[in-house]
Write a protein that binds this DNA or RNA. Structure first.
Ligand SMILES: [Zn+2]
Length: 258
DNA sequence: CGTATTTGACCGGCGC
DNA sequence: GCGCCGGTCAAATACG
């Protein structure tokens, strides 16, 4: 709050704009080489960010589960608390962050709450889009076996920090009905958008009755995330050697595919 | 110009 | 193994 004085936006100057004089003096083969290197590095950073967000979200859901279980057990009885104490002791001893790509066999993402909603659309509106207030990025479209109309795949535009996905497809026999399948829950507030058209069947198949929402009410996740971003940005801007450290870490062996 | 969509390639799971 | 099928990626393209 007080650290960001007024209108100081997060403009991060990584010294990526050397003067034209300097650039012209460097042979362009080297610059091309550097460009390619930068692209690779950017790719790696992107994958790191993605996996980081995946792990974060996974951990969060795990945490919620544990809290839930803990609460219910707490209400049930206090007799088992001694036993539980021993199990809880194996916490993370050191806070060292390790990107572990070790085993090719992945635990694979589990436990994503799925809900299905049906939306009636006017025949005039032929666009197969379900307005639910969130912002989506389409990333695929496929024809399915038992339905003439194609199925569209969307990701929340806040990805990868928000893992929510949705599929939209017209109903088999009634083409005026759109069937949307949501997967996961948003971890951020809705972008301000007034119109929401979801006044039809809500065939909810969620295994978990959105304990997340309660959790997010208790802990203001949005301000938390903003604080995180602020910290990251300030650590970048205030400490120039930080970028060098990052570069060294990346060019070293964070991931060693090859 | 930066960003969103399109669309064929690609991949992994499953039944055979 | 092979082919199908649902799902995803990413380069090309369209958009504002
Ligand atoms: Zn979201």
């Amino acid at each position: 709050m007080d650290t960001s004085s007024g209108d100081k936006s997060f403009t991060i100057d990584l010294n990526t704009k050397p003067s034209l004089q300097t650039i012209n003096r460097i042979p362009h083969e080297i610059l091309d080489e550097e460009l390619i290197r930068m692209k690779e590095e950017n790719k790696k950073l992107t994958t790191i960010l993605t996996t980081l967000c995946e792990n974060y979200n996974s951990l969060q859901t795990h945490l919620i589960e544990l809290l839930q279980k803990h609460n219910s057990e707490d209400h049930n009885s206090k007799l088992l608390s001694r036993k539980r104490k021993a199990e809880d002791d194996h916490s993370c001893a050191n806070s060292e962050i390790i990107f572990e790509e070790a085993s090719p066999k992945r635990p694979r993402e589990i436990r994503t709450n799925v809900s299905t909603v049906c939306v009636k659309t006017t025949p005039s509106d032929q666009s197969a889009v379900v307005k639910d207030g969130y912002h989506w990025r389409k990333y695929g479209q496929k024809v399915t076996r038992d339905n003439p109309s194609p199925r569209a795949y969307y990701k929340c535009s806040f990805a990868p920090s928000c893992p929510v996905k949705k599929k939209v497809q017209r109903s088999v026999e009634d083409p005026s009905v759109l069937v949307a399948t949501y997967e996961g829950e948003h971890n951020h507030p809705l972008p301000s958008q007034a119109q929401v058209t979801v006044p039809l069947i809500n065939q909810n198949v969620t295994t978990n009755p959105t304990f997340l929402n309660k959790f997010m009410e208790d802990i203001d996740t949005t301000s938390l995330q903003q604080d995180l971003v602020a910290q990251m940005a300030s650590s970048l801007t205030e400490n120039p050697s930080f970028t060098a450290a990052v570069a060294a870490a990346i060019s070293g062996n964070f991931f060693e595919y090859d």
